[in-house]
Amino acid sequence: MASLHKNAWFFPFILGITLLAAGYYVINFHNIIELASSQSHYENYLNKGLGNSDCNCTAPKRTQKVPKILHYVYLNEDPASLPFNFTHWLAFTSAIETIKPEKTYFHCIHEPKSYWYQLIKPKVSIMKTRIVTKIFGNPVNIIQHKSDIIRMEVLRDFGGIYLDLDVIVLQPFDDLLYYDFTMGIEKTNQSTLCNAAIVSRPFAPFLTRWMLGYKDFDDSDWSRHSIRLPYNMSKVYSNDIHVLNATAFFWPTWMDEHLDLAYASNNYNFSNQYIYHMWSTKSYYKYLQYLSPKSIKSEETSFNRVVRKFLNYLPKDFNEKNFDFDG
């Protein structure tokens, strides 16, 4: 009996500790659940190597930085110049139907009048732009350089995806929207960053620096500020830009043998790239002026094969007999 009396305190003590622990858990249950579900706790959990690879946990999502909007710049200072033609319709249709943007902005001085533009017009928002004459006091006369400046300004102010009028979009851009700024390498006799496709958040640091580089702009130098300057900057400010390899955006290139590969052969596979730049300045008179819905349907080339699906977006009453390239 003496031994039993001596240990009588033990059972009430254990019961008290158990009740105290249970009470603490109930009181703090909400905080424990909140901590366990927080992103920081989840990340620490994985970093410590305690995560179960078989669990159905959903990893924290990355933050989208670039709005899913498209920008096109169409600088026809003379309303009669630069017709909006079939290849423009093809480029716009490929981008709108592949990227599926929330908005497509058409930055222009004068709206085109062609049939092909009328097909696209309901899908775009018209943004009247200005005629560029100077940048940082330096004269700007070449139309392509004027377009370079407008595209940088709209990306700075709005963010989004800028595309040249002769860019065919082959894959969605969704995974590129998580970077501050993205450009692709154009590799010919030297490496540059081509500005025919640019993905940027508003006021991206790389874009701001690039624009400031125009303080010594020289209109007589064709490519210095538009493609060579961003390439050189990418080596210095590599943390501010996502650079895609040469085949992602601008392959095949504008060189004659590459144009032949795209437009005259059936040997190139476009399946592993985001876009194809049609290089209209170089390819128009040899290839693009002869393109039509009929030729795309009937002639087996690498280019025709990959753009054929976009002809499904032609109006049901489209009459091939009345086809006019320039509308």
Results as ranks from 00 to 15, higher is better:
268 Y>G: 08
319 N>V: 12
237 Y>V: 05
92 F>K: 02
257 E>N: 11
261 L>E: 11
59 A>E: 08
277 H>T: 11
37 S>L: 10
307 V>P: 14
17 I>Q: 06
206 F>Q: 05
116 W>C: 06
79 P>I: 12
157 D>E: 14
117 Y>Q: 04
303 F>G: 14
274 Y>L: 09
1 M>T: 09
62 R>I: 11
258 H>Y: 08
321 K>T: 06
298 S>A: 05
106 F>T: 05
114 S>M: 07
49 G>W: 04
312 N>H: 04
69 I>R: 05
206 F>T: 15
14 I>F: 14
186 E>H: 02
30 H>E: 05
109 I>M: 01
198 I>N: 08
39 Q>S: 10
51 G>M: 12
327 G>Q: 00
36 A>D: 03
143 I>V: 15
109 I>D: 02
77 E>M: 13
40 S>F: 09
317 D>W: 14
205 P>C: 00
4 L>G: 06
156 R>G: 06
266 N>T: 09
169 V>F: 06
41 H>K: 11
249 F>E: 10
228 R>E: 12
303 F>S: 06
120 I>R: 00
257 E>A: 08
278 M>H: 04
200 S>E: 04
155 L>W: 01
247 T>S: 11
282 K>D: 07
304 N>A: 01
46 L>Y: 11
96 I>N: 00
302 S>A: 06
290 Y>T: 14
5 H>G: 08
119 L>N: 01
317 D>K: 03
109 I>P: 14
144 Q>Y: 13
17 I>R: 11
280 S>E: 13
254 W>K: 15
59 A>M: 12
296 I>R: 05
173 F>E: 15
177 L>V: 03
198 I>H: 08
212 L>T: 15
219 D>F: 04
282 K>L: 07
230 P>E: 00
171 Q>N: 13
270 F>V: 12
266 N>W: 04
215 K>S: 03
294 K>S: 10
135 I>V: 15
110 H>I: 14
186 E>A: 03
71 H>W: 07
14 I>H: 01
47 N>I: 03
219 D>G: 08
290 Y>C: 12
222 W>T: 10
286 K>I: 02
74 Y>W: 15
295 S>M: 10
40 S>D: 12
25 Y>W: 04
103 K>A: 02
306 V>E: 06
229 L>D: 14
128 K>L: 07
60 P>W: 00
18 T>P: 12
214 Y>L: 04
73 V>G: 05
33 I>A: 04
247 T>K: 12
267 N>G: 13
97 E>Y: 02
105 Y>M: 11
147 S>N: 13
32 I>M: 05
34 E>P: 13
213 G>H: 00
33 I>H: 09
2 A>F: 11
174 D>H: 09
270 F>R: 13
246 A>G: 02
193 L>C: 08
210 W>Q: 02
202 P>A: 00
160 G>K: 06
293 P>L: 02
185 I>A: 01
300 E>N: 15
191 S>W: 13
34 E>A: 13
171 Q>A: 07
